[in-house]
């Protein structure tokens, strides 16, 4: 049952915009059922990597291979757009939250189960006729959504518009929405940005439980070093589109190249790296 191959292997990923090289020959792997963090100073190209992985950009070069538990293998550099989520089962969140603000929290989680429900609704025909098989599938989808609302502590706000929720709740809801797509790999773009200390701690617990209880692998971009150091199994450091370090949290923290990169970029970030985990 357990698969030894890494869930995601990136090899020589390169992304050019016109003459600018945003990502240069990046290679790293993300292990199954682990939390892999992608860190680096502002403008290092972290979100660009995410956009390549999740099909929003078509990389200029390199390969990205995703292997499911059942050995099904997907070349992410050849898939594009919605197919990455639909077939390769990679779901993501966004740096600037992208919920559906005019829909309720519950509806947001239902939209995430679109492909499952679409199949169950017989491409809307069975659904129109309200066939029992579709009704059962819908009940299941609602149950899954309810379970996630419970996990993120938003059950009592299920019927409120997502746009009306406080900022921290929106961040958690976005992660839950991505999980409702039942991904093999969850990509989170700065999930702790703008959260206070309590909310950050709750988020760490949520991510650990996703890894341990559900067994979903996580790829994480994060600036909050306390979160990164606490929950990551593995850290990849980017600077100017190039990988400068790769390893366990402790090793990365002590790497002089990492410290230099952060010092060169921003003193506060550097201090955060050095004191991270405390």
């Amino acid at each position: 049952m357990t698969n030894a191959a890494p869930i995601l292997a990136i090899d020589g990923l390169t992304m050019r915009f016109g003459g600018i090289v945003a990502i240069n020959e990046l290679s790293f792997t993300a292990q199954r059922r682990q939390i892999t963090a992608l860190i680096g100073p502002n403008g290092a190209g972290k979100t660009t990597v995410f956009n390549c992985i999740t099909g929003f950009y078509r990389p200029s070069g390199g390969t990205m291979t995703l292997v499911h538990d059942d050995d099904a293998t997907f070349r992410l550099d050849r898939l594009h757009d919605f197919r990455i989520c639909k077939y390769a089962k990679v779901a993501r969140t966004f740096q600037n939250i992208r919920l559906f603000p005019g829909m309720t929290a519950l509806e947001n989680l239902m939209v995430a189960q679109h492909n499952t429900l679409m199949r169950a609704s017989g491409f809307s025909l069975l659904g129109l006729l309200s066939a029992p098989s579709f009704r059962a599938a819908e009940r299941q989808a609602i149950d899954l959504a309810r379970e996630w609302l419970q996990r993120i502590g938003l059950l009592d706000r299920a019927d409120d518009a997502a746009g009306n929720l406080p900022y921290g709740d929106q961040r958690r809801l976005e992660s839950a929405r991505a999980m409702c797509a039942q991904p093999a790999l969850l990509c989170l773009d700065e999930p702790a940005a703008g959260l206070n200390a309590n909310e950050s701690a709750a988020l760490s617990d949520l991510l650990l439980s996703i890894r341990d209880d559900i067994g979903t692998s996580i790829l994480l971009i994060e600036h909050d070093m306390s979160v990164v150091m606490e929950i990551s199994d593995h850290i990849v450091v980017l600077d100017h589109g190039v990988k400068i370090a790769d390893g366990a949290p402790r090793a990365v923290r002590d790497d002089p190249k990492v410290v230099a990169a952060y010092l060169g970029a921003d003193e506060e970030d550097a201090a955060a790296v050095m004191e991270g985990g405390a």
Binding site: F100, H114, G127
Partner: peptide, 28 residues
């Protein structure tokens, strides 16, 4: 009826945020 089916929810979700729809595997 369609509004309450996945297709209708996808329409409204698309109106709200097309990029998020694509990230959730919806074929725009």
């Amino acid at each position: 009826r369609l509004r309450a089916l996945p297709i209708g929810r996808a329409w409204e979700a698309m109106r709200e945020d097309e990029v998020a729809c694509r990230a959730l595997g919806i074929n725009i």
